[in-house]
Amino acid sequence: MTPSSPARRWLSAARRFGGSTGNGPLLLAVLLLAFAVWPPRVQLQRPVFNWQVSFDITQSMNVEDVELNHTAVSRLTLARAAMRDVLGALPCGSKVGWSIFADYRSVVILTPVEVCSHYEELLASLERIDGRMRWANASNVSKGVTWAVRGARSIGPDTGFVFISDGQESPPLRINETPPMTDIKPGDVKGWLIGVGGDVPVPIPKTGSNGEPAGYWRADEVVQGSAMGGTLNHEHLSELRQDHLRSLAELVGVNYRRLNKPDALMTAMLDSRYAQQVPTDTDLRWIPALLALLLLVWRFAPDLGWLRERQPAKREKKAIDSVPPRGLTRPA
């Protein structure tokens, strides 16, 4: 006869012990806890997302004309805060990477990594994205968008892009000027252009190479629109250029949304149209752990039997309280 395996012998002993002692629920709870600690590998089809997010880090993004928790903050600060919320909401299996935009390039600094296993690293690197990483003061947003498309396309066919900017070109574009994009087919890469900023033109803070404040840009320090054949002559001031971002979104075949509150970015990046249904490892340990907890509560916590044991004691106490003291009579 083939000897039984240790697991079978253990289960047989557990059944005998449970049957003889009435501790079946306790043993079942132990088994469930074992499954919670050493769970089998489970793969389920679930929606995941794959994004390469590009942040505009030019100086106009330091304008404090947006709010976060009822406090005025810079556009870049609001963008980072909104992205933190997205990281916490993306389902496991999703991937996110970082790019930064300045001058005319959107440069990949971190290719997409899985959000759950790299959550702390993504948060830490996100907090370090600021104007100190800027390598030039120019802001050719239209070219930056096309480079964001190229960057996402080079990572993989399932990678979408998010480009967050106020849309201000510096120097301004010439009339009817469009970015070179002969290698880009509209809609070739899915994604979003996210606009951030207020509607009223305000001064742009000037910063040094290390991010230290250096006053504000003056009109005579920047190229004005009239010099490029345009009509705007307040390029030393900044507001959200929504019309320009919308036209760029249409040009590359993506959608546009305004970031006027943090959850606007989350709604965009968790849009089901951009999800991929893929088999992913799914953590189901909470199910046997919860069942084990319920069994332990049922086994050890006060239950109906415990209440029944207390009820006679309560009735006896009431009967004792109802007996009048000696020498006294109950009033009629």
Rank of each mutant, 00 (worst) to 15 (best):
K185Q: 12
L294M: 14
V223I: 15
A29R: 06
P213T: 07
P91W: 13
K206V: 02
T282G: 01
E221Y: 10
E250K: 14
I155P: 01
Y274G: 08
T146Y: 07
E127M: 09
L237Y: 03
A89C: 02
G211D: 04
G160D: 08
P201S: 01
R153Y: 09
A152F: 09
L307V: 14
S139P: 08
G198N: 01
I100L: 12
D283E: 02
L90D: 02
V113I: 15
G167C: 07
L328S: 00
T21D: 02
S94M: 04
R330C: 00
D183R: 05
S99F: 04
R285A: 14
N210A: 15
H118D: 08
A36H: 05
V86K: 04
S165M: 04
H244S: 10
Y104W: 12
E250I: 11
R8C: 08
W135H: 11
V254W: 07
Y104G: 05
D188G: 14
G131H: 04
S4K: 13
P3H: 05
D103R: 11
S247A: 14
K143Y: 10
G305A: 12
L291N: 04
T282E: 03
A332P: 03
N255C: 06
G156C: 01
A227G: 03
D85E: 13
V63A: 11
D199S: 10
E221T: 08
L293K: 02
L307A: 15
L193H: 05
I194H: 02
R310W: 15
S4Y: 15
I129P: 03
R128Q: 15
W98N: 03
H70R: 13
L248C: 00
R308N: 06
A264L: 03
A292F: 08
T280Q: 14
P47H: 06
V37G: 00
G24K: 09
A14Y: 00
